[in-house]
Design a protein around this nucleic acid. Sequence first.
DNA 1: GTTATGTGCAACCCGTCAGTTGCACATCAG
DNA 2: CTGATGTGCAACTGACGGGTTGCACATAAC
Lengths: 125, 125
Amino acid sequence: MLRVDARASDDPGVTGRRPLDELFDALADPTRRDVLQRLVHTGPQSATVLAEAFPFTRQAIVKHLKALEEAGLVAAERAGREVHYRATTERLAEAVAWLLGTSAGWDRRARRLAGLSPTAREGAG
Amino acid sequence: MLRVDARASDDPGVTGRRPLDELFDALADPTRRDVLQRLVHTGPQSATVLAEAFPFTRQAIVKHLKALEEAGLVAAERAGREVHYRATTERLAEAVAWLLGTSAGWDRRARRLAGLSPTAREGAG
DNA sequence: GTTATGTGCAACCCGTCAGTTGCACATCAG
DNA sequence: CTGATGTGCAACTGACGGGTTGCACATAAC
């Protein structure tokens, strides 16, 4: 439900693996973003069908889907011998929260914009 | 500031280099996000000073700053022999827009949330 | 002018990752 | 059962990117 929390970032101190990583990492690849969007527009699809819309092999798409799945951006559902991937949204909110939370740091209006709590902070120690 | 457009995604078509790429790419690296946040919290700083807060060399930080700069997330300003990097916000909005625009596709509520922005309410500026 | 501090450039490891291919396994249709 | 379609796994390759070091250049301080 895209609930923006505006926290979405535990204290890192300069370095440390945070859950945001796999999320932004998943979103970093253009193909992955395309896959995600296509999934959104067309509804749940199998990797095979999905791959037909891209200039890549099924396996490549599968890899992307795995990445997206680990990031919590898509969910896989088995239907017989087929596996349908469906876009999910919760995780996306975290990315938005970080962006908004970060921008709030130097743009007060951003925080008001989203009605976020000023607890936003992930600063490097 | 932080004007969320909720469109921000031209037809994906399956492939094609879009400006969003360098943006998400810049945000993909955890160190880069840390640098960005630190820049936000501490205000403009030189690469050298900035590097002291990280377990990396100045050069590493410089590279990240270059990436952030190309993505339009920070701006460099020369001051004598020093160069101060300052966080900027416009570009961040594009990322938010994409996320919101994407989520809106399969989550109507997201659009309402985005509705607090397409041109909007207060952030628009 | 000399020294100290700060930036810029280039070359160089090394790991990771996108994408590939090949093949084995599972399921549906006849 | 047999063949067709779909998925899963593993190994391999090539490229890109993060991080490093070393050194040259620029500016500030004395």
